[in-house]
Structure formats: C-alpha cells, structure tokens
Design a protein around this nucleic acid. Structure first.
Lengths: 213, 213
DNA sequence: TAGATTGTTAATCGATTAACAATC
DNA sequence: TAGATTGTTAATCGATTAACAATC
C-alpha cells in the first residue's frame, strides 16, 4: 500500500485509454496531445494528464505523447503483460458465452479450467477447454494455480463456493451472480457485473422525469 | 427536464435497492430503517435517505420504510411496470446468452425480435423468438415498435446500423460492442457494457501497486 | 528562439457523510 | 409521552477542471 492508492474512477478509465490508443496506433498515429485525445474520447485534457500522472511522466512538453509508448505503459500498468490463470464456474449459456466471446489473452488472462455440476455437460469442451466437475477443482487448481475465478453460477452455488476458492488461492472474482460478495480477506478483489441492473437503468432512462435532486 | 436531474450515481444504485428490498420482502421483512438497510448493503444511512428523497418521501419518522411499499415505489421509478419492447442485434454466442439468460420482463422489457446477417442462423429460434435477417428490421419495427436495441454485433456493423435504428424509433441502446456510440440526438440513451474493460480492471488489481495519486 | 504542450498546483464542482430539528 | 427515525440542511471529502510555470 503506497501513499495514496489510485482511485477507482481512474482505474476504470485505463482500459478505455488502452483501447483508444490501440486504435490510434492502428490508424497510423505516432504522437497525440492530451487535447486531441480528450476530444476523441469525450474527456478533458486536464483529466487525461492527471490520470497519466498517477503513474509517471509519459509525455514530453511541447510534443505530447508517443502513442505506441503510452499504450505500452498503460498495458503494463494494467498488468496485461503478466498472464494470470483464470477459471470459470458455470457452463450455462452465460458462462459459455463468456468462455468463447472474451479474448482472455489480450486482457491479461488465460482460461485454464471450466467447471459445472451438471453431469450432462461435464466432459464437453468449450474451445479447447474441457468442462470439469466442480469436485475436480482441487486437481485443476494444483496443476494451473488460477488466481482469478469467473462466477457464472446460481447465487446459492456462489455463496457455497467462494470461501473454498479463496482457500485454493483465488485472489480475484469476476462476479456475474447476484450473490453479494463480502470478502473478509482484504487482499481479494471483486469486480461485479450486474447485467440486470445495467438493463434496468435503461428502463429508468426510457421512463424517467421522475424526481429532482 | 426538471430543476436538477438525478445524478448517475443515484440511478445506478436504484436497481440494487430494488433487489435488496425484494430479498428482504421474501425473507418476511415488513419494515426497515435506513440504518439497517445501510448495514446490509454496505452503504451509509445518510446516503440511502438522500437517494430516496430525490423521488419523494417514502418513509415515516420513528418507523422507517415499509419494505413492500418502498420496493414498489422504486420499481415504478425504474419504470419496471411499463414494459418496453426491445430487439437484439447479433445472435452470436454473446447475443444468444443475453437472449436466454436475462429476465427481460422483470427489468421492464419484452424481447420482440432477434436479428443477424448470417443466413445459417436466420430462421432458428432462441426461446420462442425467431432470428430474423437484418433486412427484415422494418417489418418487425412496424409490428412491435421497439424503443430499445441490444448491440451484440461487431463494431463495424454497429457503426452502420445505429443511425438507421434511431430513425426507426430506437431511443436507447444496450451496447456490448466497442463502438463508441456518440449520439447527436440528445434524447437517446446509451448504456455501455464493456466486458473486456471490466476484466482488465481485475488484471490491474491483481498486478497493482503501481503509482500513487 | 518561439510555439506547443506537458506536469502540477489551485479552484471548482459534485457527491457523500454528518448533524439535527421535525414528527411519527 | 419518550424513543426512534425520517427528511433536510450543513460540513466534508474527493474528483474534475482550470490555470500556469516548466520545458521540450
């Protein structure tokens, strides 16, 4: 734990910077100023400079930022150069979609195991990863040492498995369930993806002009 | 547009309130105080009271809030009682998972059409909704009048379709693509779900202790 | 050098928390 | 009534924006 830790707002912007810089690079940009990047991303130049300066001095006065260099730095900050083994719990339609849709490598992960309890699907493969029974968790963990788990299982199953996963060395959860992960271990991270909540905010926006604040 | 519009931070908390109140109701709670709810949700009582007071006075001094009543009010604020027709573009593995995994009705929507360009999947059904060719968009829109579209198509396809969708009456997008929706029409809402960005923040957390701010 | 643009400090804005009078 | 808890105002905290000296 350093002086002051990086704020959540900044962290959430990093992947988006990384994506935009990748596109700029693909479009042949060599340098870019904070002002120009701000315009493209719909941010302010100030915010961009503030964000980057949390991590170092990546620019050059009078010139701006080197696109490829800056992209690499942010990739490094995100830890994308350090591949972490990750497992997926739940091979229902959401789990399957995550397993096949997400480009794990470019996000700093390698999918090393998929688990389910349904004997009908155990043994099937998704991509080149076989679906294991949850009882084989120990074996897979011993071989691959995953540090991260994706939860695409029912809420009750999640509440049962989480402690065991932490015992097996899982230090981060990508949580698609509605189970409210309250981790006592302070060194375990949780990223919640509540798709239903996300959709409900759209319902609000389509029906709003209730209330003022 | 009223005096001051409700802040995004508040809107994002509404679905979570709604979920927790539903659970409390299922567990037999009749009343709850802001203090007790705060404890259960990991918020402060102040924040909860501030949030609710954007929309009205739902509590009673000395008593707290009626669980069922408050849940109903928040449901109404979210517009869940007003079902909006919604269409899905893209029947790849993510689109399919969304179509079958999400409980649209409880989120204020009804899925009325699924579109793809791949002739191999057109005609198939997901649940009881047939996959139509994107060329049949007009027909389906005329029948069902969807107000919302889910984008599970490639980035380039999204950039092509968005304007046409707005012309056809779409007023909200649930965007799973990396296409950066910049809507000129001020009355169109966008909810971005960048799953890759979400996963990348976990990579950051697993590799961090870079930088301070 | 002159012009541009950073890194960084200061000012502003907004959101969260604390406090308390009103009241059930 | 006395105790509890709201609704709401004021205080605090944090994040965003503006400004500008440093410097490439």
């Amino acid at each position: 734990m350093s002086k002051n830790t990086i704020s959540n707002s900044v962290i959430r912007r990093l992947p988006r910077y990384y994506r935009f810089l990748g596109e700029l690079e693909n479009n042949g940009y060599v340098r870019i100023s904070s002002r120009e990047l701000a315009e493209k991303m719909g941010l302010t130049a100030s915010q961009i400079r503030q964000d980057f300066n949390c991590f170092g001095e990546f620019g050059q006065q009078g010139y701006g930022y080197n696109v490829a260099g800056l992209k690499m730095e942010i990739g490094r900050i995100l830890g994308l150069d350090n591949i972490t083994p990750i497992i997926l719990l739940g091979a229902g339609n959401l789990g399957r979609a995550i397993a096949s849709h997400i480009d794990f490598t470019s996000k700093g992960f390698e999918l090393v195991g998929i688990f389910d309890t349904n004997p009908a699907v155990v043994g099937e493969k998704i991509g080149d990863i076989p679906i294991s029974h949850i009882d084989d968790l120990d074996t897979v963990c011993k071989i691959h040492n995953p540090q991260c788990a994706i939860l695409c299982i029912p809420k009750e199953a999640a509440s049962r498995e989480v402690d065991r996963l932490i015992d097996k060395g899982i230090r981060a959860f990508w949580n698609f369930t509605h189970y409210d992960l309250r981790i006592n271990h302070s060194d375990v991270s949780v990223e919640n993806v509540h798709l239903g909540d996300s959709l409900a905010t759209l319902s609000y926006r389509l029906n709003s002009d209730k209330g003022t604040c």
